[in-house]
Design a binder for these strands. Structure first.
Lengths: 226, 226
DNA sequence: TTCATAGTTTGATCATAAACGAAGTATTAT
DNA sequence: ATAATACTTCGTTTATGATCAAACTATGAA
């Protein structure tokens, strides 16, 4: 009965509503200040501070001080992936926090998953890149093929710089709404950033929703078609 | 801030030590009675009963009544996968419940992950089957190739019967110790069962450890070599 | 029938930890 | 300097929920 890692501690950290709200807010990928997080969670600053301390102690979040502000973010991709997985389980069990609101359709369509694109459009990209042999689901990890490298470069991304990074280039991440994989890792982040750069899409304020322009969505569907 | 599914509820369910112990015990894949679970969790029967009711309400476990016994099990593979993912995160953060005990090496080597094989040997099987093109990591899901089907049949598994099942045949599941994928799904279960049948390995009582015989391990390493 | 075992329900107790106000530190703005 | 903002620390209050004993239901055994 005392085997393996302590899931109870992690569970209880995620299990508090205030902390869960903070973590969900951080799933937007943006680094947020303690004040912003306290607002998101609907609690006062002192309470938020205590919560953040606990999350930090478990290395679920990272912090960076900038002047009198303190910015918090998810510690790494894996934390985001696990949160997304838990959301998937919760969604499937019908444990939805609110009745399906107006935002939900948009969330399912395209949203940010910590730092990369999730939702139907995220899955579309993943499927397209697999179908065209840009990505190879070899072994456990994903690999970018030479074809894929050419394509991504043509899309305006500096692949070599990414590869020099310690961060894994390609990773798959399971989608809670579509229940399919989408692309995470350095490349996933770079692709999303580039799409913002190209003006294909923009972020909705304090939300995970990624709003594509009509043109942007058309381009995405074409250029990443299977 | 009120987007998406309610992760706090799931988190708090997993976050209680007693419930976490029960869920961990159920990760052995065996169905356990309420009494057994109360013993595993170190609590009295009434308390356990209350916990099980909550887990049931969230559809994390299933129950089956047999005479005056009530058997509990994890609701499905997805629950097991998420628990394993959380263990992975916890392990990486160094949130280990106990100092690395004698069982830990055995656990890393081979253990049961709900109903299939995990640990180094589980990963070995997965790698071997991928390398030999028995399994194709296509798209999101895994497919069993014709070669693979022949191999598995030769191993003594009735593939057709498995395929008629509603349950997905192949799924990958992330390993918390090896941080690599291993084979889950109907085929994963069937393979493990067959290995027990062949006498390659046996279960350690009330533990996730799968103990391979010297011969069994040798066979496994050879027959599933990359 | 009577007894024993398995599990549930109820009610009371108790500990934990979430919450906030107030006071304290640190950084920036005026 | 003074003030304002951003965050932390401390101490107190409060509510939640985990726990168990005792009583209750249901199934099986003698």
């Amino acid at each position: 009965m005392k085997e393996g890692p302590d899931i109870a501690l992690l569970g209880s950290l995620i299990g508090d509503p205030a902390r869960a709200n903070m973590l969900t807010a951080l799933m937007t990928g943006k680094a947020l200040t303690a004040s912003e997080l306290s607002y998101e969670a609907g609690i006062t600053l002192p309470t938020a501070s205590a919560h953040l301390k606990k999350l930090q102690a478990a290395s679920l979040i990272s912090q960076r001080k900038s002047g009198r502000h303190k910015y918090f973010a998810l510690a790494d991709d894996e934390v985001g992936a696990v949160l997304e997985a838990i959301m998937g389980l919760a969604a499937k069990r019908g444990l939805l926090r609110t009745r399906t609101g107006p935002k939900d359709a948009a969330l399912r369509r395209a949203r940010v998953c910590y730092n990369h694109l999730a939702g139907e459009l995220g899955v579309h990209i993943y499927d397209g890149m697999i179908a065209r042999n840009y990505i190879l689901a070899d072994d456990d990890s994903l690999h970018l093929t030479d074809n894929g490298k050419a394509f991504v470069s043509g899309f305006g991304i500096d692949v070599d710089r990414l590869q020099n990074n310690r961060r894994p280039l390609c990773k798959s991440c399971l989608d809670w709404s579509a229940r399919r994989s989408h692309l995470a890792g350095g490349l996933g982040t770079a692709l999303l950033d580039r799409m913002f750069e190209l003006g294909w899409a923009s972020r909705e304020k304090s939300s995970r929703v990624v709003k594509f322009t009509q043109q942007g969505e058309k381009q995405l569907l074409e250029q990443f078609a299977s």
